[in-house]
Design a protein around this nucleic acid. Structure first.
Length: 577
DNA sequence: ACAAAGATGAGGCGCTTA
DNA sequence: TAAGCGCCTCATCTTTGT
């Protein structure tokens, strides 16, 4: 009989003083329960697209969407935290006003025209107001943002009536920052001192605000983290927005990220420290969009996406997939105990529990009269969360079937049929969550009515292709690079089953995709419209106990091939190679 | 030889509490 | 504010079974 404890058991004797065994874990061979400090049934996060009552959560939610803390605070103060719609509206107004047309901001919703070959066209001036009295409008804007009339008037006087709202708010921010020190000095000095980002201007000599200025400003405000800062994951993890909640419609892209092709990179959000900073830096300094798929379906999947896609007018795949476990698996409702308060599943992974575990849990529960004691509940819940178990009978839990995981991930049922159960779990567990990715891709549909050419790196079982197909976006040509023959076969099979009219080309290894090969494709197709890929996460994910080596790891270092290939595609398409 | 089962924590974040 | 604790994570390696 193996009685070995997990390593966490040994050093935690002090956490409980009243009851020597309060938390338990189920051990395989014995069926005996042992203390386990990790079990806690009370902390399951109930997902909600509505903000919680915590002010900091509302604040974080909007900050996570890229708005400045100051703006959000103002907006919340103005409308109250419960009125998120109004708060968002105000924030969007601020954002639009911040990007007055004479400033050289690149807003991604305006970057590309609907025509394939007009990527570099100037963006339009939609949504930008042109008031009759500019000064009056500025004053109103500042007052709306919560500044005192006197402050606003002074700021306009100091910066000049033709100053942008950005300049004025910067001035006022600086004023607030130094208020305790020497407010009067700030407002009275000819040259504005102390703070580098406070600009005073000759009204006639208007300073152009560049992207780097904005990035710098955003860094100062904590929106973009540089090397010496830790990139913070948003909470809630909704990226630029989700179908059931507030959405941001504009963002600033670095110049280097602009221009064909569109690119879309994905990996695990909870990577070791510094990884996302490196990824972002390697992909033209585009800040990652972190999204948890639990906002799209009933399973969590925390992922980061670095892309240069527009974010305005996204739309979800319909019908929306089930949002709760009960909706997705109605038959489990009958057997679901009241003390299992899960409404969402944890992340879809690559390994699943055995029938033996379910058997042990069944025995344990059968040994209880009525509702099991709390310590048993904790032990059971620990396993349920760890293995994503469902209640499929009285006291009986079971892991998800491969077909069920396919559905949860947004794939057609039996998408991976034909290979071993183990391989199916592994392939699906490594895939995109289709609804999440499709939401991001949706902006492409109207831009490419005739279809797109796709370079799909690390294709896996074709999550990107399935997402595009589900959106009704025709794929004219797809070059799919995937090392696993099993996965290549799955994609090929799906391509034929869905009667695609385009052409699918398989390659095995990203390392062998060189500039000559890319030139051939590009000249043959007329260029790629989308370069998509999620490089291996093996060395990044916390699940890996053995080789969590970061981006330098054996498999995860293939990320740099994504960068290399994307750079090549950009250069070739720009005529530089 | 192949497939399934079993054993193997660190790391990092959010929340609570002192 | 800091410390403690709960919780989660696109996994890998070895053993066992067929």
């Amino acid at each position: 009989m193996d009685e070995s404890h997990s390593s966490v058991d040994d050093n935690d004797t002090d956490w409980n003083t009243d009851d020597e065994i309060d938390n338990f874990t189920l051990l395989p061979s014995s069926g005996v329960i042992h203390p386990c400090p990790q079990a806690n049934v009370l902390s399951w996060e109930v997902s909600s697209s509505r903000p919680s009552s915590s002010n900091s959560k509302v604040l974080d939610q909007f900050i996570g969407m890229g708005f400045s803390k100051k703006m959000v605070e103002k907006a919340i103060e103005e409308h109250g935290e419960e009125n998120t719609e109004a708060v968002l509206e105000t924030l969007l107004t601020y954002s639009a006003l911040e990007s007055s047309p004479h400033e050289q901001l690149q807003m991604d919703s305006d970057l590309f025209s609907s025509d394939d070959e007009s990527f570099f066209d100037d963006f339009s001036d939609e949504d930008i107001t042109s008031p009759a009295s500019e000064e009056e409008n500025l004053l109103m804007s500042l007052i709306t943002m919560g500044y005192q009339k006197e402050e606003a008037t002074t700021a306009i006087e100091r910066c000049g009536p033709s100053s942008s709202l950005v300049e004025l708010t910067d001035f006022l921010s600086a004023a607030q920052l130094v208020k305790e020190e020497d407010l009067d000095a700030l407002f009275s000095l000819e040259e504005t001192p102390r703070l580098e980002h406070v600009h005073t201007h000759d009204p006639k000599k208007k300073r152009k605000v560049t992207v780097s200025d904005i990035l710098k400003r955003k860094r100062q405000r904590g929106h973009i983290c540089t090397d010496d800062e830790t990139l913070r994951l948003p909470n809630p993890m909704i990226g630029f927005g989700i179908p059931t909640g507030a959405c941001q419609s504009r963002r600033i892209l670095p110049n280097a990220a602009i221009g064909p092709p569109y690119f879309y990179y994905e990996n695990v959000a909870l990577a070791p420290k510094g990884v996302w900073e490196t990824i972002s830096r390697s992909l033209y300094d585009v800040p990652p969009e972190f999204v948890d798929s639990k906002h799209f379906c009933c399973a969590a999947r925390k992922r980061g996406y670095v892309h240069n896609l527009p974010i305005a007018n996204r739309f979800p795949l319909t019908p929306l997939p089930p949002q709760t476990i009960h909706e997705a698996f109605p038959l489990t409702k009958e057997w679901w105990p009241s003390w299992d308060i899960r409404t969402k599943l944890n992340c879809i992974v690559t390994c699943y529990s055995s029938a033996k575990l379910s058997e042990r849990m069944l025995k344990l529960l059968q040994g209880c009269d009525g509702i099991p004691p709390e310590r048993v509940q904790r032990a059971i819940m620990h396993e349920c969360r760890k293995w994503n178990l469902l209640w499929v009978g009285k006291n009986k839990v079971a892991p998800l079937e491969p077909g069920e995981v396919e559905i949860l991930m947004g794939f057609p049922k039996d998408h991976t049929r034909g290979v071993s159960r183990t391989d199916r779990y592994k392939s699906i567990g490594n895939a995109f969550q289709v609804h999440t990715v499709a939401y991001h891709f949706s902006v492409l549909r109207d831009k490419f009515p005739n279809g797109i050419n796709v370079l799909s790196l690390f294709s896996g079982i074709g999550g990107a292709e399935v997402a595009l197909h589900s959106l009704g976006i025709r794929m004219k040509n797809v070059v799919s690079v995937e090392i696993s023959e099993v996965n290549r076969d799955i994609v090929q099979c799906w391509w034929e089953q869905t009667e695609q009219t385009g052409k699918l080309i398989h390659l095995a290894d990203v390392k062998e995709l060189d500039s000559e090969r890319l030139k051939q494709f590009i000249h043959s197709f007329g260029g790629f419209d989308l370069v998509v890929g999620g490089s291996p996460c093996n060395n990044l994910t916390g699940s890996n106990r053995y080789h969590r080596d970061g981006l330098e790891g054996k498999e995860s270092s293939l990320f740099f091939h994504y960068c290399r290939i994307l750079d090549l595609v950009k250069s070739i398409m720009a005529g530089l190679l």
